[in-house]
Amino acid sequence: MSMLQRLTESRVWRALVRQGVSATNRNRILLVMDNVFLHLHSAKTRSRNLELSSTYFLGAISLVLFGILTLSGLLLMLYYHPSVPQAYHDMKELQFVVSNGLFLRNIHRWSAHAMVFIVFLHLLRVFYHKAYLPPREFNWVVGVILLLLTLGLSYTGYLLPWDQLAFWAVAVGTNMAEATPLIGPKLRYLLLGGNAVGENALLRFYVLHCALLPLALAMGVAVHLWRVRKDGGVQGSSGRYGSRRQVKP
């Protein structure tokens, strides 16, 4: 028995790789059903659905960007203190001292910009495809919530470097929130944890950016993908754009 054989037949290996690579329908289904990450994915997809022009992969790219952002964000959290003035000092540490720190920061920043852009395009693609019509109206609403969460993440992340740009952007943004009828001033107070952009605001934005909003987004993505599976994606499993078939979400 060769080493390879012994390895592939070991219990550990078989616990991790339960199915082989044979391209039978049964094997494919087992592969997906047994995999915790892939079970949201269809076991079998029509090749037509994979065509670039149907979605331009915009949803998938958004998901990948979210993955990159989560990973790079976790690494950035190792170096970042949400306190004044250390937050800005940490930017300098990332730039000048931390190994690949600037790369880490840049990839996080550019991916964030890209994610906002791609999510917008995704929305446009769905809109012009009339893919928001029943039976996918629920997923459209979920998608809009995901867009808002994406924007929220982008905005809260903007304050964290604690530079002039960040400070004034948040000062302006929260003053805009203050213009909300009735609850405006309270809303601003709630966002900033005070009346001015200061240490409390930095801490709140940090918690929102690193815990609340990403968790909400992850759950939203799960629901979104689940509905894609059940109701069909942009081009839809029903095969017809704008089918009037009512499906309970």
């Binding site: 730039q95 000048f96 530079d163």
Partner: peptide
């Protein structure tokens, strides 16, 4: 100058920011 920097231009504060 900029104490945290480790490149000449940044340390000497020659950068715009």
């Amino acid at each position: 100058g900029q104490g945290r920097a480790t490149t000449v231009a940044d340390a000497h504060g020659d950068s715009e920011d």
